[in-house]
Design a binder for these strands. Structure first.
Length: 370
DNA sequence: CAAACGTGGCC
DNA sequence: TGGCCAAGTTT
């Protein structure tokens, strides 16, 4: 009996995306980098970042030794920046603990920051020709449809079952098969309106047999996406330089350079709700609150010049509504009595700022208002 | 184990 | 336009 794997391999041989940049190599560094970049990120988004990153940092040693700011600048715009920080930590661990070679067992590979079960399997299969199964979103969807799995796709029991299926179904040539099932999921067994009329697995697909192709995988609970509101401070000095602060490694935009996020409420809450923000934006209090914030937080004496319109940036788990406060540095002197530890920012020319790792909305702001 | 973590494309 | 989804891992 012809196995599903054989059909996928034959389909891939004829229809697969053999020209993707990371399909031209068996180098573990290049394979690993592609896997990390492709986590939760679409192929077309990754392509330009992948080439640029490899040109700048072509191997483990270069990545391990690079300044974190360079790594984040190369990642800027890709999102999920913990991936970039973890990638550098992984490179440092490989150089320090694994003699500069990607480790060749699942346990050791998964000890690398940012490398989980699926990523480890993908690299081991392709770099070392090991028989390792992956379970990414594509493989998951294909298995759920072909096996007509009607349980919650996120439930741990379902995932255990899917991993078992993936392992059973993965042939000796896992390197080719893993790519085959991913391309199949990306081109035929797509999330919505799968192309069942062109599907070589049609005769063996339980979802198709049961008329469930459009219903599976079962939808998962959509969490509430709250609105958050705030201000970005766009401070300029006399020579037109911009003030940015480096965000802490944990949390949103970790490690990136960012316009200071101004919290006029003075509380520990990072954002105001919208009506509060409107009231403040229209009120005369804003000017004084900004001056106070800059003096206390950064030791800067500033004057507010303007306020931009409301803009929006959407994250996975919330939406950020913000305005920019345009202000100028009034006095180049640091305010007296300011402790060093609160001087958390640096001044950048616009050009130098845009060369750093910036969150996408900050990059847009600084690109627009030249 | 649920929540956190970015961004862009699609319909 | 707004919700859905994408080559997941970490805490």
């Amino acid at each position: 009996m012809i196995q599903i794997a054989d059909i996928l391999l034959a389909w891939y041989d004829k229809n697969g995306r053999h020209d993707l940049p990371w399909r031209q190599t068996r180098d573990s560094y290049r394979l690993w980098l592609a896997e990390i970049m492709l986590q939760q990120t679409q192929v077309e988004s990754v392509k330009p970042y992948y080439q640029r990153f490899l040109n700048a940092l072509p191997n483990w040693e270069a990545l391990a030794a690079a300044p974190q700011d360079q790594v984040l600048a190369l990642w800027s715009g890709l999102g999920y920046y913990a991936r970039a920080r973890n990638a550098q930590r992984a490179a440092q661990k490989i150089v320090a603990d694994f003699a500069g070679e990607f480790p060749n067992t699942p346990e050791s590979a998964e000890s690398l920051p940012g490398v989980g079960r699926s990523t480890a399997a993908a690299v081991l299969a392709s770099a070392f020709a090991q028989q390792r199964a992956i379970l990414d979103a594509n493989a998951r969807r294909v298995l759920i449809r072909t096996q007509a799995i009607r349980s919650d796709p996120k439930a741990s029991k379902t995932l255990q079952h899917l991993w078992k299926l993936a392992e059973v179904q993965t042939p000796a040539d896992a390197h080719t098969y893993n790519q085959a099932i991913q391309d199949f999921g990306a081109m035929i067994c797509v999330p919505r309106h799968p192309h069942c009329d062109a599907c070589p697995l049609q005769r063996r697909c339980l979802a198709y047999a049961g008329g469930l192709s459009e219903q599976l995988p079962l939808p998962t609970r959509k969490p509430e996406k709250p609105d958050r509101c705030g201000f970005f401070l766009q401070l300029e000095d006399r020579s037109g330089r911009i003030f940015l602060e480096k965000r802490p490694d944990s949390g949103v935009w970790g490690g990136l350079w960012c316009l200071p996020q101004f919290n006029p409420a003075g509380s520990s809450l990072p954002f105001l709700c919208d009506d509060q923000q409107k009231a403040l934006a229209d009120g005369f209090l804003l000017r004084e609150r900004v001056r106070q914030f800059c003096a206390l937080r950064h030791g800067l004496v500033v004057e507010v010049k303007a306020l931009t319109r409301l803009q929006k940036h959407v994250f996975t788990h919330f939406q950020l509504h913000f305005r920019c406060i345009l202000a100028t540095l009034q006095d180049d002197q640091i305010a007296p009595g300011v402790a060093d530890q609160i001087l958390t920012g640096r001044w950048f020319t616009r050009e130098n700022a845009l060369a750093e790792g910036l969150p996408t909305p900050v990059r847009k702001i600084l690109s627009q208002t030249s």
